[in-house]
Design a protein around this nucleic acid. Sequence first.
DNA 1: CATTCGCGCAACTTATCGGTTGCGTTTATC
DNA 2: GATAAACGCAACCGATAAGTTGCGCGAATG
Lengths: 110, 110
Amino acid sequence: MVNAERAIDPVSIFGALGDATRLKLVDTMSDGESRSISDLASGFGMSRQAITKHLKVLEAAGLVANDRVGRETQFRLETGAIDAARDYLDRVSRHWDEAIGRLKDFLGEG
Amino acid sequence: MVNAERAIDPVSIFGALGDATRLKLVDTMSDGESRSISDLASGFGMSRQAITKHLKVLEAAGLVANDRVGRETQFRLETGAIDAARDYLDRVSRHWDEAIGRLKDFLGEG
DNA sequence: CATTCGCGCAACTTATCGGTTGCGTTTATC
DNA sequence: GATAAACGCAACCGATAAGTTGCGCGAATG
C-alpha cells in the first residue's frame, strides 16, 4: 500500500485539534497560505522543534500537508480532514435531533 | 459568577472528543437517552471508575450533563458544545474557502 | 569558500493521561 | 436491618505528550 497514514480517523483529528498550540496553527494556516516552519514558529513563544512536533501531529491526522521548497519545508492546511470532522459532528447532532424529535412526537401523542 | 466551568472552549471540546472511549460515549449518548454510569460502563471493556473519569472530561468540556436519580447518576448529551465545535470548524473551512477563492480570482485575472 | 539559515534527528525531563485497585457512603431491596 | 447496587474519592502506576537542548547536514548567501 502506497500512501499509508491516510485514515481520516475522527479520533486523531479531534485529538490533533485538542491542543491550544495546534489549534492556533490551524487557525493561522486557515488563510490558505503556505508557511515555513520557522515562519510559523516565530509567532508562538516556543522552539522551532516544538512546532515541528505539533505539525507532525497535524500531518498524521491529515490536517496539514507540506512541500519542500529549497531549504524550507512549507506547510499548508488540508481541508479534507476538517470537513470530515465537521461531518462527524453533523451526524451526531442530526442523530440527536431526530431522536429528540421522535420523543417529542411520542409525548405529543399522549 | 455562579456556574463556572461554562467556557465553551474549542480546545477542551476537541480534546475531549480526541479519545476513542470518549467519542464512543458521545456516540452512544447521541440517541438522546439518559444512562447511568454503570449502564454506560457495561458496554466498554473497562472499569466503572475509568468511565467516570471520561465522563468528567466530557462534562468539563460541556459535552454532557448529569442528574442524580436515586442512587444513579444519569448522563445525557449536551449538544451545545457539539454545535460550537462544528461552528468553529465551519468558520475555519469558510475562511479557507474565501481565501482560496480570492487567490483563484487573482490568478484568473492575470 | 566560509557562513548562516532552515531543518531533521535524538536524548532527556516533567507533567499529564488512561487505567487500575481499594474503601467508604448512600440508596434500594429482601 | 442485613445485603447489594451504584457511586465518589483517592492513591497508585505505566505510558505518552509537550517541551527542552544539543548536534549535524544540506541549501542559500556574501
